[in-house]
Write a protein that binds this DNA or RNA. Structure first.
Length: 286
DNA sequence: AAGTAGACTTGTTTCC
DNA sequence: CCTTAACAAGTCTACT
């Protein structure tokens, strides 16, 4: 679930809540969720301090006092829930009927802090992971990511360059983390709608104007989604315990069968593209 | 090299 | 209504 706006929202919440806290203990209930040696993972984290939470694309990066880093990827269904006393502060995937008593059956890793608070890493599908890396390894990881939207480096010129000599579809390119970091299935569909471009359009067929619109779409939609604290499905809550408000701004995602909110003529269709549900208006997207 | 299908996993939804 | 197959917001691997 979490794409750039949701991960950024979680990052801010964690940075507010647990940056500066010393880790009293770490419990790994499912080794699958830890990449590398679990023994080392526990040894490094126990007694360590979370200094700062950063983000690259959809990857969370916690700087540790020891000089190492904890990488956290939530993939589709990961959640980070911080519990302090009776207060629950959560972020990530959620679903109707989930068990808010913690830990629950999807809790795989638990961090305990000295003040009695705890951070739970839950993941229904167990695709997510945590991993300890050195500074050098971190830099190697970060090289895999393309341009970061919502930063100064995200210029039209750089964006246009990405589209040169590509043969794939507009949506596949937008979602490729190697070129643009942070867009996933929801926001890629929304950006294509904004630009009036069918997600399946081949990149070589795109006009200059359409590429510019796609660029603007990335900026406008991601900025707005971050401001709304991400997109909420069912009872997802963000890292400050509030619901993400972007769902009401979605124009095509999850709106199959609805009349197009822009042209008022087309009906939103959902097709399968690259194995993903893809939504667009056949009337106003070319 | 670039592009894409398949795999990973578990719970829910949808269709017959 | 029950059963079953399809489907789900991400990314890595392996293949063409």
């Amino acid at each position: 679930m979490p794409e750039l706006p949701e991960v950024e929202t979680i990052r801010r919440g964690l940075d507010n809540q647990i940056a500066g806290l010393r880790i009293k203990s770490v419990q790994v209930k499912k080794a699958r969720l830890v990449k590398g040696s679990v023994k080392k993972f526990i040894a490094v984290l126990t007694g360590n301090v979370f200094l700062k939470f950063n983000r690259r694309g959809k990857l969370l990066i916690a700087a540790l006092k020891s000089g190492q880093f904890l990488l956290i990827h939530l993939k589709m269904t990961g959640q980070l829930i911080y519990q302090h006393g009776r207060q629950l502060i959560a972020g990530g995937h959620s679903f109707v009927g989930m068990d808010w008593r913690l830990p629950n059956r999807h809790t795989h890793i638990i961090f305990s802090f000295r003040n009695g608070s705890r951070l739970f890493f839950n993941d229904l599908r167990q695709f997510g992971y945590m991993k300890i890396v050195s500074k050098i390894e971190l830099e190697k990881e970060l090289k895999k990511f393309g341009i970061e939207p919502l930063t100064a480096g995200f210029s039209l010129k750089n964006f246009v360059e990405i589209f040169a000599n590509k043969k794939t579809s507009a949506k596949a390119l937008l979602m490729n983390q190697k070129f643009i970091a942070g867009l996933g299935n929801i926001y890629a569909d929304e950006v294509c709608f904004y630009a009036k471009v069918k997600p399946s359009r081949r990149v070589p067929s795109l006009t200059e104007g359409e590429i510019k619109k796609l660029y603007q779409g990335c900026r406008v939609i991601l900025a707005k989604a971050v401001k709304a604290r991400g997109t909420t499905f069912s009872d997802y809550v963000d890292a400050d315990g509030r619901q993400g408000g972007f769902i009401k701004f979605l124009k095509v995602y999850g709106r199959k069968g609805e009349k197009c909110r822009r042209c008022r003529r087309g009906v939103i269709v959902k097709i399968k593209q690259g194995g993903r549900g893809t939504h667009f208006c056949p009337q106003c997207q070319q």
